[in-house]
């Protein structure tokens, strides 16, 4: 009964993978007349070397790391804080939860455009109004602080996810453990450091890994805000440009293989945790 799902997924994985691998070892420029029908020239590792040594490669890796790292740092730190706050007794907890979770359900193109225009537009955006109100010169966010702005937008989208999962993790903490540590004389801060944080450790790891995998392939947010300009060209976007804009399939495919390797390194760690969980 597993066969249909397994066969479909196997095809879904193997066909593009094999094609990408093949293209990464050939010269393939459709605009200059290369086509599969005419046969493609084998160039060995040339695409890999060129992609690796091109002037855009290292900046794109740096930008990717900065973006993923920045979003993760914001989401984890604020996620833990918000989760702790939302776990406290309060009035209207359900409504606050709904408010906090909402951005996750906004489609990426909408959130990117709303932030780009309504909030960050240097003339008519709310931030510009706010800056002028305090007598400051409005910032051209997506040009002068482009990477930070995108990090901010993406964090807004993913913070709900981190908060919700961390909140779920906190709520699964046995309150007797906290009471025991309180009886043992631990201050609130010590209770957080020695009981709550270790308990959340696994959830934090999982959030980090899952978000990393999704964040590595962030696309729409860059596509509709800066289009990869002003120092926001991540590895994903660079590959996209090589394939679609410059139509250099060989080069783009070599980049794709790099991206696959990178994603798999992170995936291995995630799978270990998930796999362990499966045994319980």
């Amino acid at each position: 009964m597993m066969a249909p799902a397994v066969v479909l997924l196997l095809g879904w994985m193997l066909v593009p993978l094999v094609l990408t691998l093949w293209f990464s070892f050939v010269k393939f420029l459709p605009m200059r007349g290369d086509s599969i029908a005419k046969g493609l020239d084998w160039v060995g590792f040339e695409n890999y070397v060129r992609f690796f040594s091109s002037s855009s490669f290292w900046p794109s890796v740096q930008i990717t790391v900065l973006m993923v790292g920045g979003v993760l740092a914001i989401c984890i730190i604020f996620g833990v804080l918000f989760a702790l706050l939302l776990d406290q007794p309060m009035w209207g907890q359900g409504i606050v939860r709904i408010l906090v979770i909402a951005p996750f359900f906004v489609m990426p193109t909408v959130s990117a455009l709303v932030w780009k225009n309504m909030m960050m537009d240097p003339v008519n955006g709310l931030f510009a109004h706010l800056w002028r109100f305090f007598g400051a010169e409005p910032v051209v966010w997506l040009q002068d602080a482009s990477l930070s702005s995108i990090i901010f937008i993406v964090s807004w989208q993913w913070l709900p996810f981190a908060t919700l999962i961390l909140l779920t993790a906190i709520q699964s903490l046995d309150s007797e453990q906290l009471e025991a540590s309180e009886m043992d004389g631990a201050h609130p801060l010590q209770r957080f450091a020695y009981i709550v944080l270790p308990h959340m450790g696994r959830a934090i790891t999982i959030v980090t890994l899952i978000m990393t995998i999704f964040l590595l392939s962030i696309f729409a947010e860059i596509f509709v805000t800066t289009g990869g300009a002003f120092g926001t060209r991540t590895l994903t976007f660079l590959i996209f440009q090589r394939v679609i804009d410059s139509q250099n399939i060989g080069l783009g495919s070599a980049g794709g293989v790099y991206a696959i390797i990178l994603a798999n390194i992170i995936a291995i760690f995630l799978m270990r945790i998930v796999g362990k969980n499966l045994d319980q």
Partner: peptide
């Protein structure tokens, strides 16, 4: 398979 970066499969 969910962790494969989509961009790697874009052209194929």
């Amino acid at each position: 398979t969910k962790m494969m970066p989509a961009v790697g499969a874009l052209y194929p």
